[in-house]
Design a binder for these strands. Structure first.
Length: 506
RNA sequence: GCCCCGGUGGUGCAGCGGUUAGCACGUCAGCCCUUCAAGCUGAAGAUCAGGGGUUCGAAUCCCCUCCGGGGUACCA
């Protein structure tokens, strides 16, 4: 390390970190931010980045979600060293395939007296909660089954009544743990109650599963969103009772919407897939997300993946929430778009231009000619915030004909007649210019404007509308060069015709 | 309600005991100029949430208040 900025106390030893999403749908940008930090840390320390699927919630399980997770991670460039698809020494990496481990752990906890079985009905639980609410007490399980008769439990089971396993909380006192971002955090056991670790369907809750798996997979650092900080005491308890050592805890600041509430659907796009489809570049997304909750300590913002890995350190993660500013993301995406070569940009643009709604009109034949596109790209490269912006900016290059509005062709201080005659003179230039390249076209038209006593803006403006059909378009003569002599002549002729017809009507 | 974590220009971030409070996005203006961008210059914009302390000195440390967020499930 030559910069020194990236050397944090913990950057030396290889870290084993895991990203453990639930397959419940698309990957939220906040979740991906966590994955990003995991990946960076693993790469930085020569450690391992482990992917684990936490599918213990059968209710919320979405079958396609697993594929979406893989795709999203691959899209943004996070490759995993252990996990689904690649295997590893702690396989399987899908929690529903590991249930024996959790059940064994639950059994050990019951045997040691740290946990107990509970057959309280949902109705009773609801009743207890209501009573507590009425008395303004903290809601929570009252511990009735702590002293449940084993025979009664067995009877419940025989009758098919649901039985869960609950962790027994210490009667009083505080729990503390060290969080790398927030320092020492303390909770009182009184604010919690005996929580479920094994559900009646035999699957573990998050609390048990995470502890068992992180220990089994030898995870050294746990990175997760701040919403987990309040349940960390539960994890401390389970670790303790199982005789496991706690990994280093790192609770990342939440990602908020501009209105400072939790980033959700109503704020627009929230999943990486949506950003990908909206035309954001993965490298821009990587860079932007890395800065959501972390900064290098100097004023750098636009950084390559390698620069981020080099500069990253856990002690520079901030403790206040990060707000997702889409405008700034768009700016950064534009920066990355401008860094591409025309060829690279053309290649990335093709899927966006070829897609049916949002791309070029269906009348434009697919597949697109990459050569023509590559020539067109420099015309709009500086003007793109997202890849999806391109279609609207270059559609006129693909239109079979342009039907300009006569009123828009005529520039300020000109009439239909003077405009038509000026375009007629331009036509000569277009027919004769040799070679048909922008420096020549530019020089000839400047001379023409002077000869006609027009401002360049007047002549060029009229031509722009004739050639592109738009008042706002890329630089005129570069555009003409891409379009070629034949099309330019046709379009200017057509504009003159249109002017003639409008005059006749008037 | 209770518990935990936050609060620096409009926005995102840096600064964490002594700075004219720094950078970026956005906004506005100028330059460039054929429009729009991009680029370059410059400007406006902050009682560092408020109030008390501690200190020679506080955005930085402590306390209170207010505001925001998170948690409080057989969801993760």
């Amino acid at each position: 390390m030559t910069t020194g900025s990236g050397t944090s106390p913990q950057s030396g030893a290889p870290m084993r970190v895991r990203f453990a999403p639930s397959p419940t749908g698309a990957l939220h940008v906040g979740t991906v931010r966590t994955a990003l930090y995991d990946w960076i840390l693993a790469r930085k320390t020569g450690g391992r980045f482990i992917l684990r699927i936490e599918d213990t919630d059968q209710e919320r399980f979405v079958p396609e979600a697993e594929q979406i997770i893989f795709e999203s991670l691959r899209w943004i460039g996070l490759d995993w060293d252990e996990g689904p698809g690649v295997g590893g020494p702690h396989a399987p990496y899908v929690q529903t395939q590991r249930r024996e481990l959790y059940q064994a752990a639950a059994r050990r906890l019951i045997e040691s007296g740290a946990a107990y079985e509970c057959d309280c009905s949902p109705e009773r639980l609801e009743e207890v909660r209501k009573k507590q609410e009425a008395l303004k007490l903290a809601p929570g399980y009252d511990g009735k089954c702590r002293r449940r008769d084993p025979a009664e439990l067995a009877e419940s089971r025989r009758q098919g009544r649901p039985v869960v396993v609950r962790m027994k909380l210490p009667p009083a006192g505080d729990v503390s743990f060290v969080d790398l971002v927030r320092g020492k955090v303390t909770f009182s056991w009184a604010t919690m109650s005996d929580f479920v670790i094994l559900k009646s369907d035999g699957l573990p809750t998050y609390h048990l599963a995470v502890v068992v798996d992180d220990h089994d997979m030898k995870i050294t650092h746990v990175l997760r969103g701040e919403e987990w900080i309040a349940s960390t005491p539960r994890h401390v308890l389970i670790h303790e009772k199982l005789g496991y050592q706690m990994p280093v805890m790192v609770h990342l600041p939440l990602l908020l919407a501009p209105d400072r509430s939790k980033l959700s659907k109503r704020h627009g796009a929230t999943s990486v897939n949506e950003f990908r489809d909206a035309g954001f570049l993965p490298e821009a997304m990587f860079n932007f997300l890395a800065l959501m909750g972390w900064s290098p300590g100097d004023d750098r913002e636009v950084m390559t993946r390698q620069e981020i890995v080099d500069a990253f350190s856990l002690d520079r993660i901030k403790d206040s929430p990060a707000i997702f500013d889409r405008t700034k993301l768009e700016w950064m995406n534009g920066v990355y778009i401008r860094q591409l070569t025309p060829r690279q940009l053309a290649e990335r643009l093709i899927p966006f231009l070829e897609q049916s709604p949002g791309g070029l009109p269906p009348s434009v034949p697919r597949p697109l000619d990459i050569g023509y596109l590559e020539k067109s790209v420099p015309l709009v490269q500086d003007r793109l915030k997202t890849l999806r912006d391109a279609a609207d900016l270059i559609d006129f290059l693909y239109a079979p004909e342009i039907r300009p509005e006569p009123a828009e062709v005529v520039q300020k201080g000109m009439t239909v007649a003077t405009t038509a005659s000026s375009l007629g003179r331009s036509l000569q230039v277009l027919r004769e210019a040799e070679p048909f390249e922008h420096p020549v076209l530019d020089a000839r038209h400047r001379a023409l404007a002077e000869e006609l006593g027009l401002k360049t803006g007047q002549l060029f403006g009229a031509l722009r509308v004739a050639i592109t059909g738009k008042k706002v378009a890329p630089p005129l003569f570069e555009t003409m060069e891409v379009l070629g002599r034949k099309l330019c002549v046709e379009r200017v002729e057509r504009a003159i015709d249109a002017l003639g017809r409008s005059e006749a009507r008037a």
